[in-house]
Simulated scan of single mutants.
Amino acid sequence: MEAVSSLFRMVKVFLTVCSFYLKLGFIHLARWYEPALRTKGKYNHSIVVLGDDHALGVGGYSTLTAGSGIASKLAKELAKEAAIRQSWQIYNRGEYKTSTEDWLLPADSKRKDKPELLSKVIQDPKYLRAEIVIIMLGSQDVLKRDPTLTPQDTLRNIELICQALRRTGNNSKSIYLCTIPTAGDDTFLTEEQRADNLTRNRLIQDYVKKNEEGVLAGLEIDLASNFEMKRRNLYWQDGRHFSDIGYGKIAKDWIPIIRPDMVKREFLLFRSDLGL
């Protein structure tokens, strides 16, 4: 009987792992299907969501044509907004298990194998034209062993990423920086690691408050800053990644933050086209 139970547990674990990687495969493929907000307007704008698992949409529902993460959910929510009258393309540039170090420009990285993710983004014209950039990074930094990333390293990397984005592409772009999700930290991290994540979020919040480089406060999606994120149904079965419900909530919470920015940009484009 013990052998049967053990075999059953092994099969269950195997199927769970297979399901996860199949789901991850769909998410990666769905990322290339970028849903656009279609309206009656002829003017086009774009938003880029870049970052780690949470930007990619790990834990959420996805098909090959449904898109993934908040990029997909945000497009659906914006389609309901009467104040948004032009077309917005929302690109998902999340990358699985990436740290802030993985998103540095090669010149800013101390690693021997230089990262290329940010270089590829800022070299691609469709991302380069983006008027709004949403950054969801930092959740993997606490897990890095080689090199170990301290909270101060995380902030410095984020600063360098924001500076690189500010120097390239649309000069008037808005950069929004989210706090680091901390759901599951009590289960998966040591006391020291949990303290480091709290410090990371405090440093991020202080950084956007100073607004010295034009980086704006995005959503606070950590448990300490936002009590609404404590609902269990917002998270996938691992307790760390957001569920489809979670990504839906995040997308809805983004609307009041970026709606004024989007409306302003639509008006400026319309006004410029009329020669006013």
Rank of each mutant, 00 (worst) to 15 (best):
E228Y: 01
R167W: 07
S19P: 00
Y207W: 06
Q163I: 12
N201P: 10
S139H: 02
C18M: 09
D52C: 08
E2Y: 05
N197M: 05
K12D: 10
I258M: 13
M1Q: 14
G25F: 03
D53T: 01
L15R: 06
E131I: 00
G214T: 14
I175V: 14
L128G: 04
L274P: 14
L177S: 12
Q123N: 08
I180P: 00
P147Q: 10
L219N: 02
V121T: 06
P106S: 09
P115Q: 08
I257H: 12
E220H: 03
F26G: 11
S5C: 11
Y21L: 10
T63C: 01
T98P: 01
D141N: 09
A66F: 13
V263E: 15
L50K: 08
Y61D: 07
L219K: 04
N44G: 08
P256A: 08
I158P: 08
N44T: 15
R85S: 13
W254Q: 09
L216D: 13
I70G: 03
A107Y: 02
S5E: 09
G275C: 07
T39G: 14
T190F: 03
K97Y: 06
F227W: 01
K126P: 06
S99Y: 07
G57K: 07
Y61C: 09
K249P: 03
A183Y: 01
D146K: 09
G214H: 07
R31E: 13
Y176P: 13
I158H: 01
G184Q: 00
I90P: 15
V142D: 09
F270D: 15
D238N: 04
V4S: 13
L276P: 02
I257L: 14
N197F: 00
W88E: 03
T168I: 05
I255V: 15
D185R: 00
I255C: 10
V49C: 14
P115G: 14
S72T: 03
G214W: 07
N233W: 01
K264I: 02
Q86M: 10
W236P: 09
D222Y: 00
H28M: 11
A66E: 05
T179A: 04
A224R: 01
V17I: 11
Y127S: 07
P106K: 05
V263H: 08
R167P: 01
G218T: 12
K73M: 04
Q140K: 13
P151L: 13
D196A: 12
V263K: 14
A79L: 15
M10H: 08
R231W: 03
R111H: 02
V121E: 05
D238A: 02
S119A: 08
T100W: 13
F8Y: 08
D253N: 04
K110F: 12
M1W: 04
I47N: 11
H54W: 10
L24H: 01
G69K: 15
P106R: 03
T63F: 07
T168M: 12
D141L: 04
K112Q: 07
D153I: 00
L29S: 14
T63R: 14
V208M: 03
L128C: 08
Q140L: 09
A36W: 09
D253C: 01
L276Y: 09
K264D: 14
Y96N: 06
I158T: 02
K40T: 14
C162Q: 06
K173W: 03
K249L: 10
